[in-house]
Structures are given as C-alpha cells and as structure tokens.
C-alpha cells in the first residue's frame, strides 16, 4: 500500500530521476528521446489491463477495452518509431573511413 508521504517521496525521486536523465542528452537525440519517453509511458497499458480486468458493467468494460486498445497502440507505436529513429544512429567509425 502506498500512502501519503511515501507516495510523495516516490513522485519526488522519480521526477528528479527524469530531470537528471534528460539534462545530459545532446540535442541530436531530443526527438528519439521524446519518442522513447513516449514509449515508456506506454506502461499505461498495465493500468488499462487492470482496469479492464476488474470491469464488470458493460460501460466499464467498453471504456476498459478502449483504454487497452489505446494503450497497446501507445506501446507498440512508441517502440517501433523510437527503434526506427535510433537504428539510424551509426557510430562515426565506418563513416570516417568513407571520407577517404
């Protein structure tokens, strides 16, 4: 059970973590990183599954299914797009040879 100040501490520490990670990122990685963090909040799928898993009435189930659908789209799309962007970042070693 997470309550009161414990939750506040978790919020605070996680916020600092996020802030620290980003502050060292070079500009060229901003778009992939935005996409990457977009993928990470795809964890919402877990919550959507829990919500649908405990839904009982038709209304709850309908909204739950929508939540799972949207969240699944977030996860898969976020991963594919980030991965596609990042696979283009090759190291400059072979490229340096290319110059000659």
């Amino acid at each position: 059970m997470i309550t009161g100040f414990l939750a506040l501490y978790i919020f605070m520490l996680a916020a600092f973590t996020g802030y620290e990670i980003i502050s060292r990122v070079p500009v060229i990685l901003h778009t992939p990183l935005m996409s990457g963090s977009n993928f990470v909040h795809g964890i919402v799928l877990v919550g959507a599954m829990v919500a649908l898993g405990h839904a009982e009435t038709p209304v709850e189930i309908t909204i739950g299914v929508i939540a799972v659908l949207l969240a699944a789209g977030n996860v898969a799309g976020g991963y594919v797009v980030t991965e596609r962007m990042l696979e283009m970042f090759k190291t400059s070693k072979p490229a340096a040879g290319e110059k000659k």
Binding site: I10, A15, T17, G18, Y19, M34, S37, V40, H41
Partner: peptide
C-alpha cells in the same frame, strides 16, 4: 515510469 516521463518531458 509516468513521473519520470512527466519530469523529463
């Protein structure tokens, strides 16, 4: 995960 993204974003 949500909070990390919230802060980073």
């Amino acid at each position: 995960a949500g909070m990390v993204v919230g802060a980073a974003g």
